[in-house]
Amino acid sequence: MRIRVLGCSGGIGGSLRTTSLLVDDDVLIDAGTGVGDLALENLAKIDHIFVSHSHLDHVCSIPFLVDSVCWMRGSPIVVYGIAETLDILRTHLFNWKLWPDFTQIPDGDHPFMIYREIKPGETVDLNGRRITAIPANHTVPAVGYFVDSGRASLVYSGDTAPHDALWDVVNGAKNLKYLIIETAFSNKEKDIAIASKHMYPSLLASELEKMRAKPEVFITHLKPGEGALTMKEVNEHAGRWRPRMLENNQEFLL
């Protein structure tokens, strides 16, 4: 299983892209602005999109993706998410006002897109690639994802504040090779981080102390203009874990 980072920033500007991970050629985990860098023929190969939560920086490419490639495909794109997330997409995005409802185009029996509800703890098996929704703690209902090839595994936290249930998954994961965890703000913005349920470096360090596993740790969702400062503080507070900044086009093999 190959995982490629299409976007990992908390904003846009220049080369920055918001969150999306491409699993092999046919699966997205979140669908931020980085999806738009794929060629049209690569976009048409995407069959499954796993959404962590409904915020725009994680879902904004879904409407454009479906609209761009629907005529090139013979089957609908499947959008996975917890019930609350799917309800938000139905009500506020694919609602004929902000964007057409592609679950009804061309018609309800032959749609270009379908929703599939998953629950925290539930695993979707895609030809031996196991993707499990895991607990997260954010301002809207949210999950992260545990991705397991059978040989190695990766945990992607999604957007989350401290949540012991997340560490239960991390510590129980077999063959855990990588942890991708958010730290959106620097320590000087801790009040904003707390209000918006994001991590900041000193908080991340205290959370990592709950981890018994020893994966490689990568930091995602850094806010534009503060990446260098935030990573400096991450390494000051969590240096023994040797966290590294996640980068666009970085690849992980599981």
Rank of each mutant, 00 (worst) to 15 (best):
V79L: 09
I194A: 12
A165Y: 13
G74T: 12
I181E: 01
L254P: 11
Q104C: 12
D57M: 10
D57C: 10
N95D: 14
L208K: 11
E247W: 00
S20W: 05
I82A: 05
L38D: 11
D191F: 09
I29M: 04
S15V: 05
P162E: 05
T33D: 12
M245H: 09
L43E: 03
V51G: 06
I192W: 08
D101N: 15
L203V: 13
I49Y: 09
I29Q: 01
L254D: 12
L65Q: 03
H110N: 15
D101T: 12
L203F: 07
M72F: 12
R240D: 02
I88D: 06
M211W: 13
P111V: 12
E236Y: 02
S157H: 04
G172M: 06
L208P: 01
F112M: 11
N175Q: 12
S9H: 05
H55S: 08
F94W: 07
R2K: 14
L40M: 05
R151E: 15
D107S: 14
L16C: 05
D87W: 07
D37G: 08
E122A: 01
N175S: 13
R244A: 09
F218Q: 00
I3R: 04
V143M: 04
V124F: 00
Q104P: 14
V69T: 03
R90W: 02
V59H: 00
V140W: 02
A173F: 02
K210E: 10
V78M: 00
S20A: 15
H138D: 15
I88H: 08
W241C: 08
D164C: 11
H138Y: 15
V140I: 08
M1F: 09
G158W: 12
L38E: 12
S186R: 02
A165D: 13
T132G: 10
I105W: 01
A238V: 00
E251T: 15
W99D: 04
W167Y: 15
F94T: 03
D168M: 07
P106Q: 06
N187E: 14
H53K: 05
T33R: 11
A142H: 09
R240I: 00
G239F: 12
K174I: 02
L203Q: 14
I181P: 04
T160G: 07
I192G: 03
M245P: 06
